[in-house]
Every structure is written in C-alpha cells, then in structure tokens.
Design a binder for these strands. Structure first.
Lengths: 218, 218
DNA sequence: TAACCTATGTGACGGGTTTCACATGACTCG
DNA sequence: CGAGTCATGTGAAACCCGTCACATAGGTTA
C-alpha cells in the first residue's frame, strides 16, 4: 500500500476537526465549509483542505463538506469508528479520574480493565469494574481483549510496569507518568505530559511571548 | 529587547530536557552530553544543541553540559524558577486529580484556590483547600494572587466559566474541557486534550503508521 | 440550459525548523 | 607543555509543512 507520510500535526488536527464536527452535528448543521472549520480551530481554510486532501476528496465544490459524512470519514481515518478496549493501570488520582472520563467512552475507548498493585485497592469497584492485581496483567489483559494500556502509576515504578505491559503483548501505550519510558520499536508509546502546557504558559508570561496561530492547539 | 522567535516545539522540548535533567541530577550525574540528552528524548544531538543555543552557550566543548546548572538555566527560561499561584475550577474527576497531582507542585505550580458551582462541593476540603463558590471568583482569585486558571468543568459550561475568568483579569488559562474556547488576544490559552493522544495511537495502529523521531513527544 | 456563484482540491511557493558538517575550544594525558 | 581527543556551537543545506492562488466543478437561478 503506497501511502504518503502523514505528519503528526495533521493527525492531531483531524482530532480537532472530529470534535468540532460532532458539535456541528449536534447543532443540526448539515454542511460546513473549510473556512468555518478553520475559524473554529484558529487555522486557515487552506490548512483544513490540505489536511483532508491527504485522504481523499470529501467535499462538494461551491458547497462545503457534509458534516455527518465527513465526521464518519475522519473517524474511520483515525480508527475510532470502532471500539478499543483499554486497560488503566494505577488507580490513584489520575487513574481514577481517567476511568470516569466520559470523553474517552464517547471516542470509542472503552475501559474494560483496571489494575493496581495496592492490596487496599485491589477488588474495589470503579465505575462497575473490579480492580485487578497488576500481577495478573499478563493473564487478564489478553483475556479481556485489551489493546491499549494507559499507565497512571507513580514515575519511579512506571518503567517496570511498562516492561510487564510490553511482555504481555500490548502494542499501544499511553503514559501519564512524568518520566521517559523505553519500549521496543514495535510498540506505540505516547506521552501525556500535563506539566508541559503549564510550562508553556509560564514561558509565555515571563517572556511576553507573542501569541501566534499555533500549529497545534493541543 | 531584541528576541528571536522561539518555536513552540523548542519550548516543549525544553520541558522534556528539564524533566530529564532532574532525573539525571537525582542520579547524581554531573554532566550530560547533547547526545545522551537526545537519546533519552528520541531526538538528535544537533536538535538539542540548537534548542539550547537560542538562549546562550551553556556547555563545555569536549565535555558536555553541567547538569545542575543547565537545569537551573532552563527553569529560568521557562519561568519555573519561581512559584505560580494556580486556581483549579471544577472539582470533578479531573479537577480533583489535578489538585492532588504532585508533579505540578514540583514544577512550581502551587494550587492556592479551588472553585466549583456545586453546592454540595463548596466548602468541602481538598488537600487542605476549601472549595469556594465560583460566583466569588472575581473577588477571591485576585485576593489569593491567582495567576493561572485551570478549567476542569464540563464542556457545555466551559465557555461561560472562561468568560468570567477573563473578566476577573486572569491572563493565563489551561483548559481541560473538551471544547474550543474563545478568549481575547491578550489572554494565553492552552488546551489539554487527553483524547488526542489516544486517537493518535488508534490512527497509528489502524494504519501501521511508522514510528518516527517525533518532533514533539508530548 | 446557460450563466453565475461559491468553495473545493491542488501545484507552486515560501518560510521555518531540523539536520549536517566542521571549526572551535576545553580538557586530558603523556 | 604540547599533542590528541572530544563534544560544543553554528553557519549552510536540506527538508518539511503551511500558505497562496487559481483552475475546477457542483449547485443555483432565471
């Protein structure tokens, strides 16, 4: 399959478009122009059209894009036109917040397992899911069809946890622990660094940094 | 003050360097080369050197960078060599997780106020802080010296909340609500979109997307 | 059906960011 | 103290990404 390199920025923007399209759909709007989409995301119309053009022609000249159809197309491109089974590891502050985070479910990410290594937490119930002992990850995760693992454990133990997760055959990991993790090349690892944006704000304020049309509004 | 445009990517990488330098310092390592720093972040040594060179010459040829000194320099650049007073608005799942998130404190972001509009939550105690009524934001936030507001309220009310926050004179906002917010040009707004990285993982898996040296590992 | 209007899709362009490559300078060892 | 080694700092080159501008085509109206 011949495929152009799609930049990370483009993918992230598709996420933005998807969200906005869902809003437009909820408002009952039938079509949307690249201009309107761009205005909402603080991007340029050309940017929107270019992003979409990597994947096909979804619009109608002179009219715009059909909202529902485009939403479905982007969902398909991103792979969220289906359900993904997710395990959350670590049910501390962050972990339990994620378990309750409705936006994940809305995007098709279904949390089916929760793990922890704290005896006091194991067996307790979060949103209808019994917390399992992380020791049993290798058995229980595949059994439950887990495809994505979210790491929400303290930094110091995150590498050990991720090693076990990789050994259990998981190929996609989202890490909330504030450390750099090492994984084999065939495992997808993404990091969610919540301090990063605060630090950006800090930098901007200290330096009176000029706001710009950010390439990526996270 | 004449200053080059510093790209967003560079600032984000400085955050990464800062974190890694803290780890290295904790390990007792005295110096670090651009190569070692690059390997840890999956970047190139040239990238690291270029990023730092925007702000000065911090290294010693033939030797590398002094860990502690560089850490302090970057902290100063990012503006985190001081304390920032932060208010968290909305003490639901995400909000209360953020209040307890130790990494913020470690980076100098001190949560001094918590607001909500739910009578059942107002007055309750989170990590030693009494939850205030959001109605009183305009009075209490300036009084407490709040400089940054974190929005952790449900999407549908986020724009109203942010409008009030702006009216109260806050110039820096970190938004966790999954919606696009509008703020005046002189207000710094950053978004934390936690679904975005999950969607990236989804895209990568569906498309067998080749891992690359990502410009920005969030 | 024809003319007009409008917004897409896309090649060309331009700017900005990353990578390259090497001169430079600091430290080390004999 | 001088030669050798090593990693920085930085112009130049390469590359990638976003913007521009317009030909194109679908819709609409008369």
């Amino acid at each position: 399959m011949e495929r152009k390199r799609i930049s990370e920025s483009t993918i992230h923007r598709l996420s933005l478009y998807l969200r906005t399209l869902a809003e437009l759909d909820a408002d009952g709007q039938a079509t949307v122009s690249s201009k309107e989409l761009a205005d909402r995301e603080k991007l340029t119309p050309a940017q929107v059209r270019k992003d979409l053009s990597f994947f096909g022609s979804f619009g109608t000249r002179g009219l715009g894009y059909p909202v529902i159809e485009l939403k479905d197309k982007i969902a398909r491109i991103l792979g969220v036109n289906r359900t993904w089974n997710v395990a959350v590891i670590g049910v501390g502050n962050i972990g339990s917040a994620l378990v309750s985070y409705k936006e994940f479910a809305r995007q098709g990410f279904r949390i089916v397992k929760i793990f922890d290594n704290d005896q006091r937490k194991i067996g307790s119930n979060h949103k209808g899911i019994q917390v399992s002992d992380f020791k049993d990850f290798a058995d229980e995760a595949p059994e439950a069809g887990v495809e994505i693992a979210i790491i929400a454990v303290p930094g110091p133990i995150a590498q050990y946890v991720v090693d076990d997760v990789v050994r259990a055959g998981i190929k996609a990991i989202l890490n909330f622990a504030p450390v750099n993790l090492r994984v084999p090349a065939d495992v997808y690892l993404r990091n969610e660094n919540m301090s990063m944006e605060l630090e950006y704000l800090s930098f901007a304020m200290v330096n009176n940094h000029v706001q710009k049309k950010t390439r990526r509004t996270v």
